[in-house]
Amino acid sequence: MDFLEFYKLSEHPFSSSIDNRFYFNSSQHAEALLRLKYAVDTMKGLAVVVGGVGTGKSTLARRMLDELDDTVYEAALLIVLHTSVTTDWLMKKIAMQLGVKNIGSSKLEVLGQVARKLHAIHDSGLKTVILVDEVQMLKSREIMEEFRGLLNMEVSEGKLITLVLFGLPELEDVLSLDLPLKQRISVKYKLKGFEQKITEEYIKHRIKVAACPQGIFASEAVQAVHYYSRGVPRLINTICDNAIFEGFLVKANPIGRDIIESVAQSLDLQPTDEEAEEYRHFG
């Protein structure tokens, strides 16, 4: 019997990879989506989402892409993988994603093609949206200027393209490399860790999606998960995933606080003294 069977789960409920089936519509993610959709629908130009490691930015980006109906939006998601992206490369990728054929070799040529394509998309009644994830890696003033250049393309209703940038808090510094671009931000949303109640709901939601008919964690275990993860979804996943495994080893059902504490310890998730004090009170 493996641990999935032991806990009557049909699949891993706390895998760290992004899976839209497990998407949890927390109030802050719902609000962020609403604001971003507003920015897109009103052709505002530039929207920014920042959040710490593991707060759900990439999940939100994927979700947003999913929700942008391709009969209404010409949308694409670019995921930055490394820091050495050049302006040429960026523009060619955008051109490619917009469906430009026979992309030119010079940047000027590509810019002209992108501009014509944006007008064509607008004329066909669609709105162009480019989502870019992990933008903090693009620490280049030239790239920021390139983004600004794209946002200069306008029609009477608004910008021809909406850029939605996702990144770590350092994204603020990257945007500051081109202050005029920073001034063009029309919607900005900051993702934080969940409140305790939301952490509880999040855990319940994921277990439910994994088809478990019953709860796996005792309520004090859930409190401990929140405490050690500080409500950061990725850490919640890591702790719960490990706790399920550890719980299975000792055949604990439901999983208690002791297992969470042991997992948190082995993962080196130590709280600050202040947080520890608070925990002692609720513990």
Binding site: A76, I79, Q97
Partner: peptide, 9 residues
């Protein structure tokens, strides 16, 4: 369906 909507830089 989403093949062309996601790309890596």
């Amino acid at each position: 369906a989403k093949k062309n909507r996601i790309s890596y830089l």
